[in-house]
Structure formats: structure tokens, C-alpha cells
């Protein structure tokens, strides 16, 4: 048992890196998706539904890349997670509010 504890040493510097990798991959993907929803709602009445969705999707890779870089630049893994979660929630809520405003049903 003690062997396992030393083996999976939670204080080891590997765990925060692993956590960041997960944050960048999955958290980043969630943030990118949320940002695409937000952008498409924002542009809905400017360029039409399909083009708005399309623009939102095309920009996701840039958002994803920025998110991943940010995750690996902040001081701690928990800060990275918190930042991603906060921003994703922010985008989701703003999208929802925009939907009420534009009356879209997507």
C-alpha cells in the first residue's frame, strides 16, 4: 500500500502537468465550443444563421490554441482549470441571454 502511495506520489511534479494536459485538451475543447456558440449568436442577425455558425466554427481552432497556450502559462493547474471553467460558463450564459434577445431557437 505504501508502495502505491510512493508510486502515485501526488506531490510529484508530473500530476499538475497531467492535469494541465487534460485541461488544455478537454477544457480547451469545451471553451472553443462555447465560444463558437457565442460568436454565431452574436453574428446571427448580421450575416444570417448558416454563415454565423460557419464563422464561429472557423474561429474555434484559434480559440482552442489560445486556450491551450494560456493553460500552460499560468502559475498553477487549478488556476488554469478555474479560468477555463469561468470563461466557458460566461460564454454559455451570454449565448443564452443573446438567444432570448434574438429569439433564436437553436
Amino acid at each position: 500500500m505504501s508502495y502505491l502511495f510512493t508510486k502515485f506520489n501526488l506531490a510529484s511534479p508530473r500530476w499538475p502537468v497531467f492535469s494541465r494536459i487534460l485541461a488544455a485538451t478537454f477544457g480547451g475543447y469545451a471553451l472553443a465550443t462555447a465560444s463558437s456558440l457565442f460568436i454565431s449568436q452574436l453574428l446571427l442577425n448580421v450575416v444570417g444563421k448558416y454563415q454565423a455558425i460557419h464563422i464561429g466554427l472557423m474561429l474555434t481552432f484559434i480559440v482552442y490554441a489560445c486556450a491551450a497556450m494560456w493553460v500552460f502559462s499560468v502559475e498553477s493547474a487549478s488556476k488554469a482549470w478555474m479560468g477555463l471553467i469561468k470563461l466557458t460558463i460566461f460564454f454559455t450564459i451570454t449565448t443564452w441571454l443573446l438567444m432570448q434577445f434574438t429569439g433564436a431557437n437553436s
Partner: peptide, 22 residues
């Protein structure tokens, strides 16, 4: 790659229509 976002925003018909536009 962005299947989740596409799925959230379009149904099958809309998706086909969007592809036709692109």
C-alpha cells in the same frame, strides 16, 4: 472536429443546407 458545436446548433436538414451554402 467541431461536431459537438455543429450538433448543438443544427439538425440534420439544417446541416445539409449549411453545407450546400458553403
Amino acid at each position: 472536429y467541431m461536431a459537438l458545436s455543429t450538433y448543438l446548433q443544427t439538425n440534420d436538414d439544417e446541416y445539409r443546407e449549411m453545407r450546400k451554402e458553403i
